[in-house]
């Protein structure tokens, strides 16, 4: 029987496939439903936050910053309460990262302000001497992509039943409504910023990437 398998490439391939597929089925499937359940009080991202999250992803922030606080005293002292599975229920994709070249950001919204982020993104070394983070001045010039952010929110609502529009959850509505809501949210952040270019752009109906990113980071709690 074994030798037969060794010279029948088709059945050999089937055999190999069964052996390698088995582990995935056993490890991933059993708790799939449970792991997908949100924690009580966890809310999906607003459109502005999603736009900021996309900025975060596009610039590979996750290559240096983790978003996973492990249950050790040294980590909870430094970053806050350890992470729970349900908190990530609306994270598509997850952004845990694999290397902490910079500090963890899972609860950065608890201890950093709009003002701090503004200074830091423009010139990290001025805020944290010795920092090796790149300067992100271009985020003050590029406009946030609200359309793609809305497209993402709309998609997850439609395909994965993410509870937008439900009581106590962020409103989504049509694109125009979502845009209006994003401008209101952005207005509060812009009011806390100093950069004149960003303020002027906002007045002219344009939200810069940095505003969306700060909205996202402030929401990480």
């Amino acid at each position: 029987m074994f030798h037969w398998l060794e010279k029948n490439p088709f059945f050999f391939a089937v055999g190999v496939f069964l052996v390698i597929a088995y582990a995935g089925i056993v490890t991933i499937l059993p708790d799939f439903m449970e792991s997908a359940r949100p924690l009580k009080g966890t809310k999906p991202y607003t459109v502005l936050q999603l736009a900021g999250r996309q900025v975060y992803i596009r610039n590979g922030c996750n290559t240096c910053h983790s978003q996973l606080i492990r249950p050790f005293k040294s980590e909870t002292d430094r970053y806050g309460k350890y992470s729970l599975s349900g908190e990530y229920a609306y994270d598509r994709p997850f952004l845990w990262g694999s290397r902490r070249i910079g500090p963890d950001l899972h609860r950065v919204g608890n201890y950093r302000t709009t003002d701090w982020h503004e200074n830091h993104m423009l010139n990290p070394q001025a805020v944290v001497p010795g920092s090796i983070m790149p300067k992100y001045g271009f985020m003050f010039k590029k406009s946030a992509d609200l359309k793609t952010a809305y497209a993402e929110a709309y998609t997850v609502k439609k395909v994965f039943d993410v509870p937008y529009n439900q009581p106590g959850m962020p409103k989504l509505g049509t694109y125009d409504q979502a845009k209006k809501a994003a401008f209101i949210q952005a207005g509060k952040i812009v009011a806390g910023m100093k950069n004149q270019g960003v303020k002027d752009a906002y007045k002219n109906g344009d939200i810069k990437e940095i505003v969306a990113l700060i909205a996202y980071l402030n929401g990480l709690k």
Binding site: F32, A36, Y88, D91, R92, P93, F94
Partner: peptide, 12 residues
């Protein structure tokens, strides 16, 4: 642009 079929811990 696309969005992952899995979320959070499952995605991980």
């Amino acid at each position: 642009h696309s969005v992952s079929m899995y979320a959070g811990s499952n995605d991980a």
